[in-house]
Each structure stands twice: as C-alpha cells, then as structure tokens.
Design a protein around this nucleic acid. Sequence first.
DNA 1: CCCCGTTTTGGGAGCGCTCACAGTGGCGTT
DNA 2: AACGCCACTGTGAGCGCTCCCAAAACGGGG
Lengths: 337, 337
Amino acid sequence: MARDAARPRRPTIEDVAALAGVSRGTVSRVLNGGASVSPAALGAVRRAIQSTGYVVNHHARSLVTHRSQSVAFILSESQDRLFTDPNFGTLLRGCTQALAEHDLPLLLSVAGSEQDRRRVARFAAAGHVDGALLVSACYGDPVIGDLAGHGVPVVACGEQPGDSVPLAYVAADDRGGARQMVSYLRAAGCARIATITGPLNRPGGPQRLAGYRDVLGEVAPELIAHGDFSEESGAAAAAELLQRAPDLDGLFVASDLMARGAIRALARAGRRVPGDVRVGGFDDSSAAVTTDPPLTTIRQPWARISAEMTRLLLSQMAGEPPAAVILPTELVRRGSA
Amino acid sequence: MARDAARPRRPTIEDVAALAGVSRGTVSRVLNGGASVSPAALGAVRRAIQSTGYVVNHHARSLVTHRSQSVAFILSESQDRLFTDPNFGTLLRGCTQALAEHDLPLLLSVAGSEQDRRRVARFAAAGHVDGALLVSACYGDPVIGDLAGHGVPVVACGEQPGDSVPLAYVAADDRGGARQMVSYLRAAGCARIATITGPLNRPGGPQRLAGYRDVLGEVAPELIAHGDFSEESGAAAAAELLQRAPDLDGLFVASDLMARGAIRALARAGRRVPGDVRVGGFDDSSAAVTTDPPLTTIRQPWARISAEMTRLLLSQMAGEPPAAVILPTELVRRGSA
DNA sequence: CCCCGTTTTGGGAGCGCTCACAGTGGCGTT
DNA sequence: AACGCCACTGTGAGCGCTCCCAAAACGGGG
C-alpha cells in the first residue's frame, strides 16, 4: 500500500537526540521550553529537528502528562436549529481561531439527543479533552453538571443559573441590550411596543424579556409573544401579536432570525417597516443585513465572546476557579427602526 | 483543587483485570472484540468494567496502534465567507453525525490563511488524525497534495481536478443539476436566460456553468456574470447583467446565497420575480426559503454527501484506494420560477 | 490413559514520551 | 588545592495499552 511506503517510520525523539549528539532528555527539554539547555545543545537539537522533520507524538506525551491538549466544543441543541442560526457559526469560528492561537485543536461534538449528551459527557469526562466550551444548552442540562462535577473545566456561552456547580460563563449583557433597544424604540416615538421573546429556558431568553420590562414596566400580556429563536417562530409570533394587538407600533424581537420572520409576517399583513411598525432585533448576526429593510439590532460582540470563553477555559485548565464575564452590547442603527 | 479531588486516579486495564480475576491480556481482548475469550471471562470482565467505571485511555492505545481514532474536518476557506454560507453548516453537521456513529470525534480545523493551511497540513501529516475531510478548497490547494501525498486518507467535497495525486471526492452532479434548472427555465418560456456563476476555481463553479452551456450552447457573453458564492456578489452580478442585457427574462444563479442577492437586486431594479424574470438557484440551502418569493432551486443531497464522504474516508482508512462519488440532484419548485 | 490439536490465558516487550534524580564538569571561594 | 555551587546533561522508570509468544487448559481419538 502506498500509505506504508510513504510512512516508513516517523522520527522519534531518540532519532533527534542521536543526530544532535545529545540525550533524549535534552531534546525533551528543548521541546518543552528549553530551560537550562546550553546554547550549543539548543542549536544542535533545533537543527536536528529541522532535518529529521520531527514532530512530537501527542499520544506519547499525553500518556505521561495526562493532558490531551485539545478541547471540546459541545453544541447541545436540537439538530435542525443547529446551523441555521448564524450565531453558532460565528461563535464556532471565533473559538476555533482563538484556540488555534494556543495550538489547541477543537473537537466538535454535537449533542442533539439525550443519548448524544450522555455519550459526549462520558467522552469528555473520560479525560479525552482538557476542557469544554458549552453552547446553547437549556438550563439545567445534565451534561453540564456531569462535566463540571467530574472536574472537567467548562465554560458556557450564556448564563447558566440554577445549576448547583458554579459554572464559568461568558455572556453579552442581554438585559442591558434589551433595555437599550426598547428605550430606543420608545424614544423614536413608539407608544405600543410589543416583544417576541426567545425560549425562557435558554440563555438570553429571560434576560431580554427582563430588559424589555425594565423599560416598560408591567405591560399588557397581549404584547408579549414567545418564539424559539427560529425564523418561523418569529413569523408566527408576529402574526399572533398582530391579531392580539393590531395597534402595535414597535416590536422588540429577541433574535435577528426571529426578527426576519417577523418582518416577513408584518409585510404579509400589509404593515410597513419602519413606517407602521418599528422593529428592533438582537444579535447583529449575518441575518440582520438580509432583511428588508435592514435590521436595527443589538450587536453581540461575538469575537470578544469567543476570545473570553477561550481565555476563561485556559485559566480554568491552569487551575483557576471558574469565573463569569459579561460583555457590553451596542445598538446598531439600520433601516428597520 | 477540586479537580484533583474529583479525579483520584482513573481505573486502568490492570484494575479491571485484578477485579475480574484475569490478566491484562484478557481484558484487552474483551475491549477489542472479545475473540477467543471464554464466556466466563467475558462476563467477569464486563462486570468489572461496569463496576470500576473503566474507560480506555485513548492515548495509551494510540501510542501502540499508531491510529488516533479521530478525523479532521478541514475548512479551507477565507474566514468571513465561512459560516455565512449555510451549506458549510449543513455539511459539518452531517459529517459530525456520520462520524459519531462510528465513534470518531471530529477535529475542526479552519484554514483561512496560507499560514493556517500549512499548520493544518503539518498537524494532519504528523499523524494526529487518521484522515481528513476537506471542504471548499480552491483547486490546486497545496494542503491537499501535502496530505494525500503523505499518505493521509483524504476525501474532498467537490471535484478536485488538476491534482497530481488521485483524490477521493464526493460531489453532487453539478453539471447535470445546472442542466436541469436551465432546461426548466427554458421550458417555462424564458427566451433570454442569463447566469451568475460561482468562482471558476472552486468546486462546483465551472461545472454549473458547463451545464448552463450544455443546454443553451454558445451564449452571448453579456449573459454571463461571475460571483463568488456570496450574497453580495450575487446582487452585484445581477445589477451588472441588468445593465448589459436589460431584456433578460430568466436567470440561473449558481448558489442560493447569490440568488438571494440577485433577487434583491432585481427587486431594486423594479423587476418582478417570477413575473418579469424567473430565477433559479442552486443548493437548496436554508437561504432558499428566506427569499421573496421562495427560491426554485436544485437540491444538493447534503445528508447523502456527508454520509458518502464519511464512508469513503473510512474505506480509505481501511486501506482501500481513493474513489469518487457523484450524487444526483433534484429540482425543487418554489415561487421564483 | 496418554498424546496432540485447539482454544484460552498470562505476561514480557515495547510504543514515544516526560519526569525525577543522579551525575558531570566548570568556576569562583576560602 | 580542596571545596561547594550551579548550570547542564544522561538515564532509569513508568504512563496504559496492544501485540505476540509461550504456557496452560481442554477435549477427542487412539
């Protein structure tokens, strides 16, 4: 087989040592930072590594260090909603990049079903990864407790309250962002501002509703409809709101994707945006620029979120206790409000 | 640290052996299929595994077997276009799932820059993964030759012609699909059918243009515009076409995302779809249902594509030679044509 | 009852690495 | 000149597993 011919035998640390005229130990020292290695030896080893094309064998190293040098990115979410939401992709990309800078490969685990979740938890708890980034789990997701409980460093995206183990997380200031948007709508002259919430058992859901209430106080229940962050649910919720409160003139939607659905539903009902109804979204995902008119929304700082998640994970892996980070949001004015 | 307390010492194969009253070797045999192990021993070992909560140490195993039991999913694409295109997500999800069924974790590598590509290639060639799924590389991407040349099993998504090493790939029948769509447009009465192509140095690009030409023969150059698969490029190309050939009444766009842009551009120019211009897309990605009107398009069988890619990779990992698979497409009628 | 072929089993060797420890030698002090 | 110190280097042990070979156990014939 060509494969065997092409891979005669990978050079080992011993080969490098022999070529450099030093011992295994010295090569190992060079590989791990080069402390207390003479300049001569260091040079020789570097040259030997170059000329043999040596690459460390992670498995051998991990076997003794007990660290796998990789982290899992766990997407705990029903399959279909998974990659339709542009936020996932943005986050995944950011984390891959941030981890790559630390030479940490990212293991992608999709845990859609309960069974998947158990499989993934077992895998991570078995020490196959040094830590995990957890995304979009519902509150109280057992996978979380399992991992953090087993002493695996975990950082979640979004707050995870009601969990016994203190869980590190990074989140945008959902509540504050919602306040920003609703205040903005009111300042723009809206008198009857409705909202479409996300699922209240998922990160971001309750906080954005709370922000809405912070500004408007106790609003009439007919002004609040619930979605599940998907585009279709946004359209359905908007139709429902129009039924219940035909006089609404402002609409705060808890995600861009739902906002896109809502705008479509409004158009279908003959309402002009922003003429009749001003619409504000949340996320500033790629969906925000594909609505007509483009969506005024709250920007989540995804790049910083992924960077902070990675930083927090690394610090936990280094033994620091779990921490939480809340990042500020920003209002992005486009055409819809 | 809590972490150390929670992980006293993971049970090893030796612990299991002791508890089951057998030797290491026997436990290992059970772990690897249980051939020539007496029923009594098998039962005892299984019970011991249960009660100790033993999980194999991949690193130790990999060290001796020289297989890492994981595969890389390499996205060789400029950063920004990466996750905006819903196709990537769909494919990634499909592959993750298909691999999970074989208990193979997926290592996600994003190789946006030339430097990234080298890093990723080195990583994969170093034997850290048993194989790689390659997505959206431009033709002649050096990363490909490197890997396949080093004897790493690779399966690409989309044809990779012009490469010296025979490379396994899975693709939808791009040319046939394009023919289907263009024929459909013509049968619907379109007399001046223009096209917006994808980049001609990327999988799918040239084939879809070829399919268009198969049906229409040598068309006037003003009917052909080029995009890069992104939504914006679709809008720009459509505007350009409208300029050059104001009388066009049919438009075949080589991706849904570009089609969405094109439809927006047409609307802006006052053309009604499908009244004035019938528009056909390609992909049937999630973008197809978010256009107005919904997009008539060619469905790429993503689920089968990921399944076939995985199957091909596994077969190559088992020593089979690389093969290619072309999957049929299907026309999906919606409102735009 | 012994012999021989066939399961089944035990355990040594070794995968490639890190870690700890025991040198080795150069150099400044007393 | 003898000593201690320090920077550096070599080496044995061992991480947890699989592989392989030889030994043990088991049966069925002769």
